[in-house]
Amino acid sequence: MNGCLRRAKECIYWPGMDAEIREYVSRCSTCRSVDVKQLKESLISHTFPLRPWAKVGTDIFHFQDYEYLMTVDYYSSFVEDDCLENVTSKEVIKCLKRHFSRNSLSFPGIGRFNIPSQAHTFPNPMIIEILQLNEGLQSSPLQRLTGRRTKTRLPTTTSLLRPEIHDESEAIRRQKLKQAHYYNQGSKDLQQLKPTQIVRIQPSGQHKTWRKAMVTKQVGIRSYEVETEGGTYLRRNRRQLRATTEDHNTSTADPPVTRKQSDAVTKSIPTTESIIAQPKPQLQQKPTTTRSGRTARPPKYLKDYVTK
Rank of each mutant, 00 (worst) to 15 (best):
residue 147 G to R: 04
residue 86 N to E: 09
residue 150 T to Y: 10
residue 145 L to C: 04
residue 105 L to N: 13
residue 118 Q to M: 07
residue 162 R to W: 01
residue 90 K to S: 15
residue 113 F to P: 14
residue 149 R to P: 12
residue 133 L to S: 02
residue 92 V to S: 04
residue 161 L to T: 01
residue 87 V to T: 06
residue 144 R to G: 06
residue 110 I to C: 08
residue 151 K to P: 03
residue 150 T to C: 15
residue 91 E to W: 12
residue 146 T to Y: 09
residue 81 D to A: 10
residue 113 F to Q: 05
residue 112 R to A: 08
residue 152 T to D: 12
residue 110 I to F: 09
residue 147 G to D: 02
residue 100 F to S: 06
residue 122 F to Q: 07
residue 167 D to N: 13
residue 111 G to H: 10
residue 111 G to N: 12
residue 149 R to V: 08
residue 98 R to A: 15
residue 164 E to G: 07
residue 127 I to S: 06
residue 155 P to Y: 12
residue 141 P to I: 03
residue 111 G to F: 10
residue 168 E to S: 09
residue 88 T to G: 09
residue 121 T to D: 14
residue 145 L to R: 01
residue 121 T to R: 12
residue 82 D to Y: 05
residue 122 F to M: 11
residue 96 L to P: 01
residue 164 E to V: 08
residue 98 R to F: 15
residue 154 L to S: 11
residue 99 H to D: 04
residue 145 L to V: 04
residue 143 Q to N: 13
residue 143 Q to C: 07
residue 92 V to R: 02
residue 169 S to P: 03
residue 128 I to R: 02
residue 138 Q to D: 05
residue 118 Q to V: 07
residue 168 E to I: 02
residue 85 E to Q: 02
residue 132 Q to L: 01
residue 125 P to T: 08
residue 170 E to W: 06
residue 143 Q to M: 14
residue 89 S to E: 09
residue 127 I to Q: 07
residue 137 L to D: 00
residue 148 R to T: 14
residue 167 D to E: 04
residue 170 E to H: 08
residue 125 P to F: 12
residue 130 I to R: 04
residue 136 G to N: 00
residue 116 P to S: 07
residue 91 E to D: 15
residue 106 S to R: 02
residue 102 R to S: 13
residue 137 L to G: 00
residue 128 I to W: 02
residue 157 T to R: 01
